[in-house]
Amino acid sequence: MTDVAILDRAFSAVLARMVRTGQAPHYVELAAELGVDPETGRRIVNDLMASGIPAWTHPGTDYIASFPPFNNQPTQYRITVDGRQRWFAQCGFEALAVRWLFPGQAVRVDAPCLDCGEWLSIETRDDEILSVTPPTMVGYSRSAVGGDAASRPFR
């Protein structure tokens, strides 16, 4: 198992890349950033996914599919920061946590309602909720927050 200090650096590097670009790095890119060989980078990615955070690789691959609060594969939760739409959230709830990675900036979540397809949006800046449209918006889950780790890529 990878040393926790390396997991700290890997978590930080993956998240920083996603904040900057909206995309997760490949394990070879991560390896270069951490100063290790590609196979070690591959192992670090998989150990990071097994560390207890709600993140996963695409099943059967070493590609980072989801890394909280972001999703590498587009979801219906589009994130716009100061007018730039570059990110997707892992789920509707994690969309509400994206703001902590963009301090002082306006973060807007736009998504279609899964019932009617009409759009909804919520805009925040740090602790402040700037707008909720429509104001009747709710969140709902039919599983525990985080849920069963093994089923996450399939929900």
């Binding site: 939760y77 789920c91 509707g92 709830f93 994690e94 969309a95 979540v109 998504a111 309602c113 899964l114 019932d115 009617c116 009409e118 909804l120 919520i122 429509p134 009747t136 918006m137 709710v138 969140g139 709902y140 889950s141 039919r142 599983s143 927050v145």
Partner: peptide, 20 residues
């Protein structure tokens, strides 16, 4: 873990389970 326009929309959605 999804957002809906209102409680009524959530209750109507295919994912709604009254146990949750």
């Amino acid at each position: 873990m999804n957002l809906f326009r209102s409680e009524e929309h959530a209750r109507r959605s295919a994912s709604f389970d009254p146990d949750w």
